[in-house]
Computed example of a mutant assay.
Amino acid sequence: MTDKPNLLFVYGTLLIKHNEFAAYLQKHCTFISKGRIAGTLYDIGEYPGAVIDNSGGYVYGSVYSIDKPDEILPVLDDYEGLSPNDPQPQEYLRLLSPIETDEALLSCWMYVYNWPVDRLKIIDGGNYLTYKSDSSL
């Protein structure tokens, strides 16, 4: 696995075209590949949360190359609730995670859900866009 701290794996609202932060991502990042990571995807309500685990499932999303990580990641961190003003423990953590693509295993930044999941609905199939298009959300 090559360490590339300028890569970002997104799996949720940052993939939705009408989301202003997804538009920001598209403007400042370049799509690299579809990807996946072993884990479980949960329905948090307005957005999903991914937990990395060995449950046998996968979370699916996209890998992007970030043009200027030092400028872009703090904006995305604020969107994901990682500012110093957000409640502790923070809802998400930004971690370097091993993302599988058809070509390679890539080390990517990923926002991982950090709160209890025992009362949350699992998104079967691990694909948020499919889930949104199949449901009446």
Rank of each mutant, 00 (worst) to 15 (best):
Y42Q: 06
G45H: 04
Y24Q: 11
S65I: 06
L105T: 15
E46D: 14
T30E: 15
Q26Y: 07
R94H: 06
L73T: 05
K132N: 04
F31D: 05
P98R: 03
L76F: 12
S65E: 15
Y58H: 09
W115P: 04
E103A: 13
T101W: 07
K27S: 15
S55L: 12
E46S: 11
D43F: 03
S133T: 00
K34S: 14
V117R: 03
T30L: 13
Y131M: 01
S33D: 15
Y79S: 09
T130K: 01
L105E: 08
Y131A: 00
T101Y: 06
I99Q: 07
G61L: 05
L73C: 09
S133W: 00
V75P: 00
V51G: 02
D86T: 13
D77G: 07
G39A: 12
A104E: 14
L73V: 05
S83M: 10
Q26R: 10
S83W: 08
Q90V: 14
E91W: 06
G81V: 13
R94D: 12
D67A: 14
L25M: 13
G125S: 00
A104C: 11
L105W: 10
D118S: 10
N114M: 08
L41E: 06
E46I: 15
E100Q: 13
L106T: 04
R94T: 07
D124Y: 02
S62I: 08
S62N: 11
A104T: 15
N114K: 06
P116L: 12
